[in-house]
């Protein structure tokens, strides 16, 4: 992505251009909470800061978050081996799809993580999230996981940390989570 464009997204999340993944994550959560809720900080402005404007800000925050996560994903990651397999000519011809089209269940995510040599404590430290929660996520212990809106954020971070595409993981994981919730 063009550098200037990235800078714009960092600015939208009120971050310096060298912000870490964790900074991006924290800013995103904080700003989303601010503009989606009814904070005493917004109240005094009343109609000078109307609903319409607020929606626009929320959209910008979402866009910036996605774009920045994607940009971070492009940085060399420790899970590059997954894609190398697919790209090396002899393997690509035999199983072109398989290596990239990853399974998205908790246990398979754990396998990828272990193969990449990433410890849960690293993810925990990066995003200030409890290791217990990450374990529950890998074991798909849905009862121990937070509401979908927060779960989505954890999944996204987990995926991004491993250099995986978050969209598919979130999608399929949440489908299983929602199915479990319905049964309950």
């Amino acid at each position: 992505m063009v550098k200037d464009e990235l800078k714009k997204y960092f600015e939208m999340l009120e971050l310096p251009p060298d912000a870490s993944l964790r900074d991006i994550h924290n800013s995103y959560l904080r700003l989303k909470k601010l503009y989606a809720g009814d904070s005493i900080v917004l109240a005094p402005l009343g109609e000078e800061f109307p609903e319409k404007k607020r929606k626009k800000v929320l959209d910008e925050i979402e866009e910036a978050h996605l774009k920045l996560l994607a940009a971070k994903k492009d940085e060399p990651s420790r899970t590059a081996f997954l894609f190398e397999d697919a790209l090396s000519p002899e393997k690509a011809s035999s199983q072109p799809e398989k290596a990239v089209d990853l399974p998205t269940t908790g246990p398979s995510l754990r396998k990828i993580r272990e193969k990449a040599g990433v410890d849960l404590s690293e993810i925990s430290k990066e995003f200030k999230v409890r290791i217990e929660l990450l374990k529950s996520l890998e074991e798909e212990r849905f009862e121990a996981l937070p509401e979908a809106i927060y779960l989505k954020v954890h999944l996204k971070n987990y995926a991004v940390f491993l250099g995986l595409n978050p969209a598919k993981i979130i999608d399929e994981y949440l489908q299983r989570y929602q199915a479990w919730k319905k049964k309950k």
């Binding site: 009120e14 904080r30 700003l31 904070s39």
Partner: peptide, 11 residues
């Protein structure tokens, strides 16, 4: 403080 900064900058 961070919220006030955000709102003032966006506003």
């Amino acid at each position: 403080g961070a919220s006030i900064k955000s709102v003032m900058m966006k506003y």
